[in-house]
Amino acid sequence: MNEPLRPADFTSDQEVRWCPGCGDYAILKAMRQVLAEIGRSPDEVVCVSGIGCAARFPYYLSTYGFHTIHGRAAAIASGVKLARPELDVWVVGGDGDFLAIGGNHTAHVLRRDADLNLLLFNNAIYGLTKGQASPTSPIGTQTPSSPAGTSEQPVNPPLFALGAGASFIARSIDARQKHLPEILKRAHQHKGASFVEILQNCPVYNDGVFGPITDKQEGPETVIELEDGAPMIFGRDRDKGLVFNAAEGRLEAVRVEEVGEAALARHMPENAAQAFALARLAAPVPIGVLYRRAGD
């Protein structure tokens, strides 16, 4: 048996060139840790990316890497996986990559369900082109290309993935260095296309866009961490929970003491109706595995 792999074994000789404070550093750290834990040789892992800040990712890993063209990473990774199914293939892109210029590929790679791990670094802005509004920018986002604020409805990534027929949909947050590696590992374990939205802060062009969600103090009140089979509870004092309003197909936040714990919804990731409700839930923001197809 060889020595166990360490995160350093997945670190390339290239100097990382993201802005100081960029959320991508945290994702890179989590990824190196996860690859080491998975334990496959860097020679058997491929990271394919599109264009943008997130897409520089492969250069900073010691695995095989392919930095391709804007929006097309999923299509190129599909070809890699078809040619070499035995390799672990990770696809990395930003919100412009996955949901604007490459939206078509994202939809189709998900419905085709090839065994790829797709990581969407969602910072709700175009970073590398200097701060234009992206498809996930909230309404009213003021940027050089939208000085009066955006007026378009943003794309909801998990809902997009559900609509495309994805078999595994998860969400995590860059700064959550315990949660994120767990989610990446579960994405890797899933046989089929795994879609992971990672909320990522851009300190230069969109600082604090996820505001209280990514804030350490506010987090427990604004985020709900999903656990398979467990009642949906959140809050600093674990005093809040979610009930499923079946008539309207949505989850609603309640105080646990008002309804009793037995009335709370339990997280069943294979329940598609609940998954749609989770995808649409804005307060609190659910993180964890939102959906996993039954039998997968």
């Binding site: 599909s78 070809g79 890699v80 078809l82 070499r84």
Partner: peptide, 26 residues
């Protein structure tokens, strides 16, 4: 020879490039 019917022309070209990168003939 295996075929892949892609979602568009761009994906077809890109998947072929991915295959060549991975050692097949795209």
């Amino acid at each position: 020879v295996r075929i892949f019917q892609a979602e568009d022309e761009i994906a077809a070209a890109c998947a072929a490039i991915g295959a060549s990168y991975a050692g097949a003939i795209g």
